[in-house]
Design a protein around this nucleic acid. Structure first.
Lengths: 191, 191
DNA sequence: GTCTATAACTTGATAGAC
DNA sequence: GTCTATCAAGTTATAGAC
């Protein structure tokens, strides 16, 4: 059973994704939910409460995923592979929320903004350490670890264009393609 | 000599990048330029005119770059390498505008929006054909070309975080790192 | 070209009847 | 919990004095 509150959050995520948080009005949202604008202040406190929930729910998925990867044991290579899988899974599970999480978090106000940025930094830092370990162990090329991190994280951003592409592929085949490109590179090396 | 009009465009790009187009008000902009909000309607026609100029100026840089790459002759590998260089160059040349170009174009209204989307599609299509040729020629791994395209294009998005990183590296060393990661892959292959 | 003043409208949110 | 009515503030843009 989905409550009306859940309907509101789902429709809001969709709307924020389409128009951006600032350009999306509560009146737009009301129309989609089938309520008058004033009516959903019985369900939610403010427009920003919606943004906060979307952003922090997604953040939690990444944080929990990172937790599991760190505790799994395994080589850096296996860990990075697992993180690609994490990003893929979260993006396919709820592409709309992930888009908002990725693109609209900056419209959070304090103190939520600082809390969010801090979660994000923590996640990136842990991802970075895995890349660094891999380089030290000789599993990865000697790239600049932070450049590699940003390249990987952003390479995974198109996943939430929940358009034709993500429906055309199974999660498994998407993972294989991503691994080919990002981990083994586009170019066929001379043997 | 920089005209006041140029000042307005430059400050606007900065502001749109920081707050997003919708959340950035003409009052904010006026304050930065040192004018009353009404005054710069002597220089520009509307808020959207600014967005249009930023978006289409950047689009043109990519289109012209693609033109040069296509006419250069050379293998697909060399062409993709040149396109990495193009994205890098444009991003380093004017990181602020590129951010707006990347993230705020959706706030264009018709008919500019359709014109923009069409330019973008055209660019992506031409990039795609280069990837496809490379695969056919056996220069590139047999990846799904469109997935590779989106992965590459988005991998290059962090370049306009004109923060510490992009100042820490020369354009040339950035290019080398990107090539390592994207073209040769993170993983050290067994010989 | 810049200003003051303001038009015309949209914004998020609230009060209070039912 | 949903409505009508409305508020207070913010929005882009214009009119007209200087």
């Amino acid at each position: 059973m989905t409550t009306k509150k859940q309907r509101i959050f789902a429709e809001a995520a969709q709307l924020f994704r389409e128009k951006g948080y600032s350009a999306a009005s509560m009146r737009d949202l009301a129309e989609r939910v089938g309520l008058k604008p004033s009516s959903f202040y019985s369900h939610i406190k403010s427009k920003e409460e919606i943004l906060q929930k979307i952003c922090f729910d997604s953040a939690q998925k990444f944080t929990e995923g990172m937790e599991r990867v760190e505790q799994s044991g395994g080589t850096s290579r296996q860990r990075v592979r697992a993180l690609l899988g994490l990003h893929l899974r979260v993006a396919l599970e709820d592409p709309t929320s992930v888009t908002v999480f990725n693109d609209e978090w900056r419209h959070l106000s304090e103190p939520a903004l600082s809390r969010f940025v801090s979660l994000r930094k923590d996640y990136e830092h842990r991802f970075l350490r895995i890349i660094e370990s891999g380089i030290e162990a000789g599993e990865f090329r000697a790239v600049h670890p932070q450049l590699a991190l940003y390249t990987l994280l952003n390479a995974l951003r198109w996943l939430h264009f929940d358009g034709k592409l993500s429906k055309q592929f199974s999660a498994e085949s998407l993972r294989e393609e991503l691994e080919k490109i990002l981990l083994h590179g586009l170019i066929v090396e001379k043997k």
